[in-house]
């Protein structure tokens, strides 16, 4: 493979990582509070607001059930509004974030719901405020689950980021489509797939490592 092509791969990998990183950070900063709210706003729960909970649940489900490629196209005007363009890696961050946020919210909700309800009751009996319960009990106790959720979200984002290549989003997917498919360069397609596999493997390994490290439910050593 020529040095030019290798450079292309390196550049595309950088673009993919950039898209995924920014989308993951932004989506987490929205998805985490939404997920916590979804997990604690049912009837009789910490922030009981069953109606808002139901509405939010519908919105989350609607976003999640829209196929990603359709979502990307459907929100082009919104993407233009935010990013000033609808082409390139920067623009691709917008649909990536919008797709990842409800996904992260559901994963966070599941992780928070895993926390023993007895602990919420315990903290309440000490006179803890709902916010104290979130920050001192729910998040620390759910941390291993939250880290695994985040890992899963990043892995999914890597997949999505390859998909935005199809609509001019840049990154590894773009490279695979344009060189591997349209110019019929199987070695380029193979390289893209190998890099993606390596990235997913790395993210998963790192995520598993940290999730295990913060998990005190298991006996150590």
């Amino acid at each position: 493979m020529s040095p030019e092509l290798i450079n292309l791969i390196i550049q595309a990998t950088g673009e993919s990582l950039f898209m995924v990183a920014v989308a993951a950070v932004v989506a987490t900063s929205f998805g985490l509070p939404i997920g916590i709210f979804l997990a604690t706003s049912g009837k009789g729960e910490l922030f009981a607001a069953p109606k808002i909970n139901a509405v939010l649940g519908v919105i989350v489900n609607a976003t999640r059930s829209t196929p990603f490629i359709i979502l990307v196209v459907a929100i082009i005007p919104f993407t233009r509004l935010i990013a000033g363009t609808s082409i390139g890696s920067g623009a691709a961050i917008v649909p990536l974030t919008i797709a990842a946020t409800p996904f992260i919210a559901r994963l966070v909700e599941a992780a928070i719901r895993e926390v023993d309800a007895g602990l919420i009751e315990t903290a309440s009996s000490f006179g803890a405020t709902p916010l104290q319960i979130v920050f001192k009990v729910l998040i620390p106790e759910a941390l291993p689950g939250l880290l695994l959720a985040l890992t899963l979200a990043v892995v999914s984002l890597l997949g999505y980021s390859a998909m935005v290549g199809a609509v001019g989003g840049g990154g590894l997917g773009d490279l695979g489509i344009r060189y591997g498919y349209q110019r019929f360069m199987p070695e380029m397609m193979l390289a893209v797939v190998v890099v993606l596999i390596a990235l997913v493997q790395t993210v998963q390994t790192v995520g598993d490592y940290f999730a295990k490290r913060v998990n005190r439910r298991l006996r150590h050593r």
Binding site: L119, E121, V137, P140, R217
Partner: peptide
């Protein structure tokens, strides 16, 4: 069931 925080 003690209700201790496993993370602390």
């Amino acid at each position: 069931h003690f209700n201790l925080l496993s993370s602390r």
